[in-house]
Amino acid sequence: MNQVNDLQTNSRTITRQSGSNFYYAFLFLPKPKREALYAVYAFCRLSDDLVDDSQAGGDPAAALTRWRKALDTYFQDGVGPPVITTVGQAARRFHIPKVYFEELLNGMEMDLTRARYATFEELYPYCYRVASIVGLICIEIFGYTNPQTKIYAEQLGIAFQLTNILRDVGVDAQRGRIYLPQDELKRFGYSEEELLAGRYNRAFMELMQFQCARARDFFRAASAALSAEDERSLLAAEIMRAIYYRLLLRIEAQQYDVFHKNITIGKPRKLLLAGGLWLRSALRSRP
């Protein structure tokens, strides 16, 4: 039992210390679901860190291969590194398909082989793998009854990832990565060289306005796919939606200047959003 508690504490610590928006959504869940989601987040965080080790002179491809093998080993005989053990336990408890975790790693592996996307149609599979798949994993833990909830998870995941991409345009450029579609840079007259140099001008603002409008469309599509019978069980997802949508609004309010301004949502605001949605849900559920 102590070993299980240690593994859960490790995953919880990784989630809390990351400052992730997800941490605030998980606070209102029953402990078994909360611990399972901490494990999922820790797995995602550490998997992503393996890919980013390329910036420190490591061999991320080899590290990711070893991580895949560790995942396979756990699902075969129940043995693996601490984070994989906890996420594997969560997968078994909540009947999460192993293929979801494999697809997530496929998405992260794309960062080792691609640094540009010609069109949004090319970008979509990447967003699906690194974000929508996380949503599909999460709803298995949250619980749902309407199959349409999978559409909700997919669309919300795309909305989250697009918001992350917009917030991190400058950071990604420093790593040599450009996620904004190349054909859309060309359409708005904003060059790759300008983006890599962090050039903030009218063309960039118009490009970002277009990108934000697309993200809004995915937020709307997710809301439209949320069925009434699953609203209560998906409270944590709705808290994340509220936080990420507020982040998108903040990008717009700052005139899309993601190069020179640190665009975040403070902890008090996140807690206020989370608490408000929890209270509204509690009041609706009262007889």
Rank of each mutant, 00 (worst) to 15 (best):
T85E: 13
I151R: 14
A91F: 07
Y74C: 03
E103C: 05
F101Q: 01
I151L: 13
E122P: 06
L50N: 02
G88F: 08
Y124H: 12
Y23N: 04
L29A: 09
R129L: 12
A42V: 11
K31H: 07
L112A: 09
Q55A: 13
G80S: 08
D77I: 10
A62V: 00
C44V: 10
D48I: 08
P81S: 12
Y126I: 09
Q89M: 14
F43W: 14
S20Y: 12
Y38M: 04
G143I: 11
Y23I: 08
L105C: 00
E121I: 09
V134F: 03
P147V: 10
L29D: 09
F22C: 08
S20C: 11
Y100E: 00
E122M: 09
D111K: 02
L136W: 07
Y41P: 04
A115D: 14
W67D: 01
G80R: 11
A62I: 00
A70R: 09
P147A: 11
F43G: 03
F142W: 15
T65Y: 02
E122W: 04
L64T: 11
Q89G: 15
P81L: 12
L27K: 15
K98I: 09
E109A: 14
P97K: 08
V134M: 02
S132H: 05
V130G: 00
L64E: 06
F120Y: 15
F120N: 01
C44G: 00
G143S: 10
R116G: 03
L64F: 06
K150L: 05
C127Y: 04
K150Y: 03
P81F: 08
L71V: 03
N106V: 01
I84N: 07
T85W: 06
N146S: 14
S20Q: 10
I84V: 15
R66I: 00
E121G: 07
R92Q: 13
R45A: 02
F75E: 07
Y74V: 06
Q89A: 10
P30D: 11
C44I: 05
R129Y: 04
Q17W: 03
P81R: 11
F43L: 09
E121Q: 15
T145S: 14
T145Y: 07
G107W: 05
L112C: 08
A42R: 10
Y126V: 07
A70H: 11
E122N: 12
G80Y: 09
I133P: 02
A61E: 14
G143Y: 13
Q148D: 13
Y23T: 05
D111R: 01
D52R: 06
A61T: 13
Y124D: 11
A70E: 15
T149R: 08
T145H: 14
N21F: 14
S18N: 12
V99A: 11
G57S: 05
N106T: 06
R92S: 02
A61N: 02
R129K: 15
P125G: 05
G135V: 10
A63C: 02
A90Q: 07
A91V: 08
V79H: 12
L123N: 06
F22P: 06
A115R: 14
L136T: 02
P147S: 12
V130H: 05
Y41F: 13
D59F: 05
D52G: 04
N106L: 05
F94C: 05
P82T: 13
T73H: 13
Q55D: 07
Y41E: 06
E35R: 10
L64K: 04
Y128M: 02
G88W: 07
L37F: 04
P60N: 06
Y41S: 03
E121D: 15
S47C: 13
G135E: 09
M108I: 01
R34K: 15
Q89K: 12
L136D: 01
